[in-house]
Design a protein around this nucleic acid. Structure first.
Length: 740
DNA sequence: TCAGAGGTAATTTTT
DNA sequence: TTACCTCTGA
């Protein structure tokens, strides 16, 4: 038997790959080759003759992971992989529901609402029901509905213990009815509906259970309760699940992920083999030791320790910045130095806990002309103009989609005012029909509005006819033309990017048609909802990668800058209340650290502009959890302070420091205080002559109390709350404060 | 219909 | 501070 694909696996990997047909849990540490194990196991199952592709179902969370998996399987397997189900939970559920739409009580061409669409649908619902959205904020209702669905609860099962929650349940029910009426399905509904389909239809259930002898799950720690129940139902009695995950990388509890599924799984499936993949192929030893030491502070772990034979590598570089601007300046200098040493910008990442932190960093990078790319934000199919175009297409596929109807009935503006639309909505509701039906039938509008409406109806009619005849890109092109969307944005001042995006939809349709067997309109719309397009912007260029720690999960970089390591920011203050929250923050820090291959920087800022106010921060407790002997503290080259610091008075309310303009470089690296506690070593740079809370007096302002400090050396400033003059930020060097 | 004012909240995110 | 939303007046 040719099993060359097994060579090069370490003993644990090999054991996982060649495990007999039984349920197993693979605890796969960061960078331990889990995707390799997953794909190689699939290949092995087929190559060894154990089973055929049709018996395999592999499920992931992201489309990216699913694609990657399929690609790697195809590279190893000469035979075709048709019949194998590899996809995301939502993708597979969609497949199931399309195939059995009648049993699932759905129209064949049901449309999928993304979160944005769902939010809009909920807002619309509240409006039609005349619900006070101050009392029942749409965001909360959306959360309520999704949380219930993810626990498998329909309105009849949802808990109601007071007037408020009773009303929420009613609204949940009304929302469901609205979706059903309009033939649309939200993300959570995909899961729940297909779960119920399998639960209630014994024939179908047995069919799929019989078929999928091997179920494999990636990122198992991210599954929510419903996803786990779905898996259990599918694997059935005698089915096997091969689950791969890492409890230490569970960072999505806030969106319903339930790590407890890992323990439940071991129990429910009588898992005999818990295989730990602890050998790491990504990072140097010091980085792994830091991660191990940090995560040891969490309780209730399944337990795992990463190791490498790559050697200790460089120390972790720590930097205490006086301010957020200084932190950014420091990072800029380091990035420049690394680039000069031949590192690729795209192989370096700048990570932060929350998106708001990117602003200062971007500003500094921009000023230094360092190319960078920020991850996150709107993705292609989420853009307004793209949504508009899709709404026309959706109506062509499903005229009952009131959400799509309202989005574009008067966009681009065709002289149909809000009043007319309201009248139409009333008429539709009275007649119990969709807006499109109401619009096509008699409507009680003024002649002018009626004409506009007919114009709109005709556009959709013509698109509907074309949908049957022309191919997908042609249809998109026609939608852009007929709707006059393109012309609309062409005449707009800032519309160039939007026009470009509109044209890009045609390209996306072309690509879709070439890739997919099923190039029907609905398949394309499903693709748009389920994949939303990778956030691709300037892929090719060599640019520094900026992203939140969350979005860095699964990625790796030779150098990683971890910024904003302050109490309240990371760990975030909102998480500090419960132990659970703090542990999740720590796992997040663990994820952050383990992104780095060779070099890791960790920095914090003593002061930072947050919500329009200067805030003073202490170094994150997570810094204290990293053994100091793994670290090296970097200090700015103090001689580089050329001019004395100048402070400028701003608007009479306070003082703002000038931008720091001294330089840093690792070549200036100073003290390595391996024996000292790291944060102390970091704090040592900012020791001040007064204590916080101490009473002081000033020649001009009189008596006051020391509130806080910021800055080092000549840059040091002190904030004092004066009895008479109020709060002032003063340069320590010149303030001449006297202790009282 | 649209621009501008004013109010408010401000982790993390994939599908 | 800023981004986003809703409301209002022309």
């Amino acid at each position: 038997m040719n099993s060359s694909f097994l060579s090069g696996l370490n003993p644990e990997q090999l054991r996982a790959v060649t495990l007999p047909r039984e349920s197993a849990l693979v605890l796969a540490g960061a960078g331990s080759g889990k995707t390799r194990v997953l794909t190689t196991r699939i290949v092995h199952l087929i190559q060894s003759g154990e089973t055929s592709p049709g018996a395999i179902l592999a499920v992931t969370f992201t489309n990216k992971a699913a694609k990657e998996m399929l690609m790697r399987i195809c590279a190893m397997l000469p035979i075709n992989t048709r019949g194998m189900w590899v996809g995301t939970f939502h993708g597979l559920c969609n497949r199931l529901l399309r195939a059995h739409h009648r049993e699932a009580r759905l129209p064949q061409l049901f449309q999928i609402l993304d979160s944005q669409d769902q939010f809009a649908a909920i807002k619309r619902l509240l409006k039609t029901l005349n619900v006070d959205d101050e009392k029942f904020p749409p965001r909360e209702l959306q959360y309520f509905i999704n949380a219930n669905k993810e626990e498998g609860r329909r309105p009849k099962d949802a808990e109601a213990y007071d007037d408020y929650s009773r009303r929420m349940v009613e609204l949940y029910k009304a929302y469901e009815e609205q979706c059903q009426r309009e033939g649309v399905v939200d993300f959570a509904e995909l899961l729940l509906r297909s779960y119920e389909l399998l639960l209630n239809d014994e024939v179908l259930r047995e069919h799929y259970r019989e078929r999928f002898k091997f179920v494999l799950v990636d990122e198992f720690q991210d599954t929510n309760r419903l996803q786990y129940r779905w898996l259990k139902l599918l694997a059935g009695n005698g089915g096997t699940i091969f689950a791969v995950g890492d409890d230490d990388q569970s960072i999505y509890a806030f969106r319903g992920a339930h790590v407890g599924n890992m323990q439940d799984f071991q129990r429910d499936f009588a898992v005999k083999h818990l295989i730990k993949l602890e050998q790491n192929y990504r990072s140097h030893g010091n980085i792994l030791d830091a991660a191990n030491a940090l995560i040891r502070n969490n309780r209730g772990r399944l337990g795992k320790e990463l190791w490498t034979d790559a050697g200790a590598g460089e120390p972790i570089r720590l930097y205490a910045a006086p301010s957020d601007n200084d932190e950014a300046a420091f990072i800029v200098e380091e990035v420049k130095a690394l680039r000069n040493d031949g590192w690729r910008l795209s192989d370096m990442a700048l990570l932060y806990r929350s998106n708001a932190q990117s602003r200062v960093l971007e500003h500094a990078l921009f000023s230094s002309s360092i190319p960078y790319r920020v991850y996150g934000g709107l993705r292609f199919f989420e853009r307004m103009e793209v949504k508009h175009c899709l709404a026309y297409l959706r109506l062509a596929a499903n005229p009952d989609d009131d959400g799509a109807f309202l989005r574009v009935v008067n966009f681009p503006p065709r002289g149909l005012g809000a009043r007319s639309v309201e009248q139409l909505q009333e008429a539709a509701e009275k007649a119990g029909v969709s807006l499109m039906q109401a619009a096509s039938a008699h409507n009680p509008l003024s002649a002018r509005a009626a004409a506009s409406l007919q114009n709109f109806v005709q556009i959709i009619e013509r698109l509907k006819q074309s949908a049957a005849g022309v191919n997908l890109p042609e249809l998109v092109e026609e939608a852009l033309e007929l709707s006059q969307l393109r012309t609309h944005y062409q005449t707009e001042k800032e519309g160039a990017d939007r026009v470009e995006n509109l044209n890009e939809i045609v390209n996306a349709a072309t690509a879709f048609m070439q890739e997919e067997e099923d190039s029907a309109l609905v398949a394309f719309l499903t693709h748009a909802s389920l994949e939303a397009g990778e956030h691709e912007a300037g892929e090719g260029a060599d640019a520094l990668q900026l992203m939140t720690v969350h979005s860095a999960k699964g990625l790796e970089f030779s150098a990683v800058f971890l910024s904003g390591l302050e109490e309240g920011l990371f760990p975030h203050e909102n998480s500090a209340a419960e132990a659970e929250g703090l542990e999740e923050e720590r796992r997040l820090m663990y994820v952050a650290i383990t992104r780095a291959r060779k070099r890791l920087y960790a920095s914090y800022a003593g002061s930072r502009m947050l919500h329009g106010q200067l805030r003073y921060g202490l170094p994150s407790r997570f810094l204290e959890e990293i053994p100091p002997q793994l670290c090296k503290v970097i200090q700015p080259e103090l001689q580089a302070y050329a001019a004395p610091v100048r402070s400028t008075k701003v608007g009479g309310t306070g003082w703002r420091a000038n931008e720091p303009r001294y330089g840093y470089s690792t070549r200036y690296e100073a003290a390595t205080k391996a024996d000292a506690q790291v944060p102390q070593a970091m704090r040592a740079k900012i020791e001040y002559p007064f204590k916080i809370g101490q009473n002081v007096s000033h020649s001009k302002f009189g008596a006051g109390v020391v509130m806080s400090f910021e800055g080092v050396g000549p840059d040091a400033r002190v904030m004092v709350n004066f009895k008479q003059a109020g709060t002032k930020l003063l340069a320590l060097e010149y303030a001449k404060l006297q202790a009282v």
